[in-house]
């Protein structure tokens, strides 16, 4: 497809500066339209469920401390290697007891892998994004601080709106086999699960079948799942 050019301006348009007047008219029109800017400190930007903000350890309402079972999955998955978990083993029943749980927020890349791999919803990322600091130590979260973060988050408005259901904990469209079954019980039973979005014009076939190259990247898939 060749690109289209606008016709060249004629002499009259050159003399009256038509294209510049058109531009000025547009800016003049925009002068009276509604502003699209946001006065940030007064007006907060929208935060959607699943936002990857400040880290927190969920405080278990029964035991009053974190739900972490020291399985170390989060520290294994972390690409920035900023999570450290210290634990000891209780001799009586063999369970692991978390001594300290550290996240260095300054090294974190906010990918959210730790939240996704956590089998018991212990670690989470809250909606809070205003926690900058002038010293490093206050951004080196230990267990107490992370629990405090959770308390802080539960008091905020966005917590009530979402009622602690972060969609990342049960990602939409995931096959059941990839979720650990009894672990995600903090999702309320009566939570409405939205119907999956699908298009209205399904059933359109592949248009260039003979295209080679990387097309055979998915060798069997085209035939099996073509809609």
């Amino acid at each position: 497809m060749k690109i289209q050019y606008k016709p060249k301006r004629d002499l009259l348009e050159t003399i009256i500066h038509l294209e510049i007047l058109q531009g000025l008219a547009l800016t003049l029109k925009k002068l009276f339209s509604k502003p699209i800017t946001r006065e940030y400190p007064g007006e907060m930007p929208p935060v959607y469920p699943g936002f990857r903000g400040q880290h927190a350890l969920v405080r278990d309402p029964v035991s009053g401390t974190s739900k972490c079972i020291a399985c170390l999955r989060c520290s294994q998955a972390c690409p920035a290697r900023c999570i450290r978990v210290k634990y000891h083993i209780d001799e009586s029943n063999g369970s692991r007891i978390v001594d300290n749980y550290e996240i260095e927020a300054l090294r974190c890349v906010y990918c959210g892998y730790c939240v996704e791999v956590c089998p018991v919803n212990a670690v989470t990322m809250t909606d809070i994004f205003e926690y900058s600091s002038t010293d490093r130590q206050s951004l080196h979260f230990d267990k107490e601080r992370l629990l405090e973060n959770w308390d802080h988050f539960t008091k905020s408005d966005s917590y009530e709106r979402q009622s602690y259901v972060n969609p990342l904990w049960r990602p939409r469209g995931f096959p059941k086999s990839r979720l650990t079954a009894s672990s995600r019980e903090s999702v309320p039973k009566n939570r409405k699960i939205e119907k999956q979005f699908t298009g209205t014009k399904l059933g359109i076939k592949k248009n260039n079948k003979e295209a080679g190259g990387y097309n055979n990247l998915y060798p069997t898939h085209g035939e099996k799942n073509a809609h």
């Binding site: 999955r73 294994q76 998955a77 892998y113 996704e116 791999v117 990602p171 939409r172 469209g173 995931f174 096959p175 086999s177 990839r178 999956q196 979005f197 699908t198 298009g199 209205t200 014009k201 399904l202 359109i204 799942n225 809609h227």
Partner: peptide, 18 residues
């Protein structure tokens, strides 16, 4: 938007995050 097919979003043989 018009042709978005239904189905799962991740394959069954997809590797774990770890």
């Amino acid at each position: 938007i018009e042709r978005m097919p239904p189905g799962p979003i991740i394959g069954d043989d997809a590797p774990d995050l770890i």
